[in-house]
Write a protein that binds this DNA or RNA. Structure first.
Lengths: 216, 216
DNA sequence: GGCGTGTTCTAATCTATATTAGAAGAATGA
DNA sequence: TCATTCTTCTAATATAGATTAGAACACGCC
């Protein structure tokens, strides 16, 4: 059995050796994300993951206790990556940033994760509705935490009087998140730089939600 | 084997008998849509479909030649339903409707299908990325046809000078479609009437895309 | 009130895939 | 260079689930 607990690829140095091992683990995890995002929860076969990761299927069991465990980790990772990146981006903003500047930042951060590290977040997004009940449960917790961040953003905008008063805040928030989450279905780096989509999205959202004259 | 070809539940009367049979077929198809939308392509088991449809699994083979055939029909049906409903809605509009009125209408129609007949369209939307290659192929054709409708709507708006000039038309279109397709993930009839979401969405999209002052 | 056709069922079959067992291969420290 | 521990493999095993075969049931028609 591997010694690391929920070991991330991060700096956190485990006491003993195990470098190559850690890399294999990451390789398998990434492969799982890739397959999961394309084939769905039930369609993700260990053999396919193994092939991409260049190992044999049973190698998986050295790192995870079951296929379900592995896939669950992919989903959780994808979810956390989004939350963490968005929160970090917001924290990096000057304290006096306007509510809409914060929303712009969140849009950019969300798109960055979802379109760049797309394998993990795609896996999380596309499979959210198909998770087995117990995993879905855990997933919902993370989802709620993330929803709270956005709820906060929108509430602040309302409080600051920057958001148009005549739309339901929840609906507005979900429409925006929908547009963001859908981006991986059509965006493709070859079509143009990420910055362009980000700018367009910010632009459209800002005009869509902002109180009257607030163009750019 | 059943006598009807691609028989729809519509008025079209098949020559001979077969009423009860047709109803069973519909029941199975609907059950398949329900399961498919929740469990994903690979996770959709014949036994589950059968249970919902109150038949035994092998009954499916009386109407379809394989599980894949059945599921493919669900996806195609879901897709067509959307296209047809939207096109019909647009056609019902007076010829002198403004480009944005047409977009409003399309938004409403899309949401109506996706949120009311949600089982089929959900199945189509959620599984689009997970279809086996051959089916995916067929799916893409339908998807392109639908994309064309929206492309037309947006182009008209641009031509009419109603749409803001400073955003990429494709991106704008896809952001809107994303917001629409995501609606089933959060909307729920108990939270409020469909008309409300429709109105909110129209409002936000209109402001998001319309050239400067075009509120309502 | 029995015959043929249409519909559904029960009881196999057959295959794909997760999982386990246990051997073989590296890496590491003495 | 050997012994130990970590990592991965090959070869079973076990099961779930699609599909097929063929029997039963229902129904309309004579």
């Amino acid at each position: 059995m591997p010694r690391e607990r929920t070991a991330r690829p991060s700096a956190d140095g485990a006491p003993t050796s195990g470098r190559k091992s850690a890399r294999t683990r990451e390789r398998i995890l990434a492969a799982a994300a890739q397959i999961l995002s394309r084939k769905g929860w039930a369609g993700t076969r260990l053999v396919d993951i193994a092939e991409v990761a260049a190992v044999q299927a049973p190698a998986v069991y050295y790192y995870w206790t079951s296929r379900e465990d592995l896939l669950a980790e992919v989903v959780v990772t994808g979810q956390q990556a989004t939350l963490e990146h968005v929160v970090a981006s917001l924290d990096a903003l000057p304290a006096d940033a306007s509510a809409f500047d914060r929303i712009d930042r969140a849009i950019a951060a969300h798109l960055e994760v979802v379109l760049r590290r797309s394998e993990f977040s795609l896996a999380a997004i596309r499979n959210a509705a198909q998770l087995p009940d117990d995993i879905r449960e855990r997933q919902l917790v993370g989802q709620r935490a993330y929803a709270d961040v956005w709820r906060g953003l929108v509430e602040d905008a309302v409080a600051a009087g920057e958001l148009t008063a005549d739309v339901d805040a929840r609906a507005a928030r979900m429409l925006v998140l929908g547009a963001l989450n859908w981006a991986p279905e059509w965006w493709n780096p070859e079509r143009g730089p990420l910055e362009e989509v980000v700018a367009t999205t910010q632009h459209v959202v800002r005009r869509g939600l902002a109180r009257a004259a607030s163009g750019r």
